[in-house]
Design a protein around this nucleic acid. Structure first.
Length: 190
DNA sequence: CATGGGATTGACT
DNA sequence: GTCAATCCCATGC
């Protein structure tokens, strides 16, 4: 998708990204779970303002923001809103599309539902790492492209974001209803 | 320069 | 259900 797609309110983009396709290094998958983050709320990395780490978040829309989580996993975001605003959509889960065998190799697992059903899992399955931070999502190496036909009007449910302690009440998580590849069920009874 | 805290996952009780 | 692994980065001395 082009930068103009991302240069909109982050909540709109987070919902609209459900059904789009992430492609990297021989593998691809349909986005079925996202979360929105915005510099106005404390769960967002950009809440602290402009630093070396958040430079990409405050930059132009349509780039990848990749950070290391818990010292182990890489997590993929799409930078949103106009430059100067620190906002991004965390890609939390995919339904695997192409490169299934390569994903199984990278993950050391067989079941399709286990390959990309979490933010750290999908980056491992697709081979996305910190070196991809800042890349343009319309050009690569990490690419996000438009929705296959059957994903064009999929119902989307909103709920609370997962694994955060600050601003936990906001319902800024979006899921494709009925997908079997979510990190957790769409209707979380937290 | 030292320290502490995660937008997680998988293994184990 | 509980818990450790592990490292980047923001903060504070």
């Amino acid at each position: 998708m082009k930068p103009a797609f991302y240069g909109r309110p982050v909540l709109e983009v987070a919902r609209d990204l459900i059904g789009c396709v992430v492609v990297h290094d021989g593998c691809s998958g349909v986005i079925v779970e996202t979360e929105a983050y915005h510099d106005s709320e404390p769960a967002c990395h950009a809440y602290v303002g402009l630093t070396e780490r958040t430079r990409v978040l405050f930059g132009p829309p349509g780039r990848a923001y990749v950070y290391r989580s818990y010292g182990i996993h890489a997590c993929l975001n799409a930078v949103c809103e106009p430059a100067g605003v620190g906002a991004a959509v965390l890609i939390r889960a995919l339904e695997p599309l192409e490169g299934l065998e390569l994903m199984r190799e990278r993950r050391g697992l067989e079941r399709v539902e286990d390959l990309c059903s979490g933010p750290g899992k999908l980056t491992q399955a697709l081979g996305i790492e910190l070196v991809d931070n800042g890349c343009e999502l319309a050009r690569g190496p990490v690419v996000i492209s438009g929705k296959p036909r059957r994903w064009r009007d999929v119902p989307v449910a909103a709920s609370r974001r997962i694994g955060i302690t600050k601003a936990a009440e906001l319902e800024w998580r979006f899921c494709a209803v009925g997908s079997r590849c979510l990190s957790r069920p769409a209707l979380s009874r937290v």
